[in-house]
Amino acid sequence: MRKRTYLKLKERGIEFSLLLSALSSIFITLSIVFILLYEALGFFKDVSIWEFLTGKQWTPLFAQPKFGILPLVTGTLLVTGIAVAVALPVGLIVAIYLSEYAPFRIKEVAKPILELLAAVPTVVYGYFALLFLTPILQKFIPNLSGFNALSPGIIMGIMIIPYVSSVSEDSMKAVPMHIREGSYAMGATKFQTAFKVIIPSAFSGIAAAFIIGISRAIGETMVVAIAAGMMPNLTLNPLEPIQTLTAYIVGVSLGDVPHGTVEYKTIFAAGITLFFMTLSLNILGFWFRRKIREVY
């Protein structure tokens, strides 16, 4: 009887410690959100939300500061757009090749090499964009400035290919063999099977892979901080220097902005903007996956 009570207590203890560790991650997330919101609210005491959301200039460190977030948002969207335009199609094609076409030997070699792309430090990618890709691009596009959105966008796209391809490939491989055979038995070619049957079957996984890739591109910092120019610029022209939200945060955090000033609080204002962008993307992804689930 005594032993039983002891075991029961032990079981309770384990359960409690598991609960505690689960709660800790929620606690950390909530405190990050809280601090972001708190400091951002402080910022909005000094600057009106209206000015923040509609102002077309972002010059918080100037003698006459302007606090319009739009240039940073367009900069982020521009670079993300370029990166996504590279990563999604290439990632999907790589996934189709690896899952449906590649013989075992090639797959064995190609997959680790591809995953190595994700292991390269992002700083290296940044300098690669700045010192290698930009000069090459300048040969074809003479009016491309030394810092621009195009080059880091492309490099970022290459960087996130493995994220997109490995998640997509996993979901394609998970399509049961008898579905594949059903298509081949109808006289379909490999290509028809891949595009008409495998991709629709793996759709929810592919959508998840795309959303991971886009989130990754929005949040990426180092490449753009190095190669995009650190210049808040309200433009959608990829040939000009720009600045993204993340690059701005890095730039200001590294400088010697005194604690508690409006300049300091801009970090959190930019941070909360970034937070809402990725949050809405995650919500979109969640909604999307649930919708797909219902369909299945």
């Binding site: 049961p176 008898h178 579905i179 055979e181 059903g182 298509s183 038995a185 109808m186 008409k196 049957v197 629709p200 079957s201 759709f203 299945y296």
Partner: peptide, 12 residues
């Protein structure tokens, strides 16, 4: 043509 052991309709 062939009909399989388990029904295998496509997601269409």
């Amino acid at each position: 043509s062939m009909v399989f052991q388990k029904p295998n309709p496509f997601p269409k």
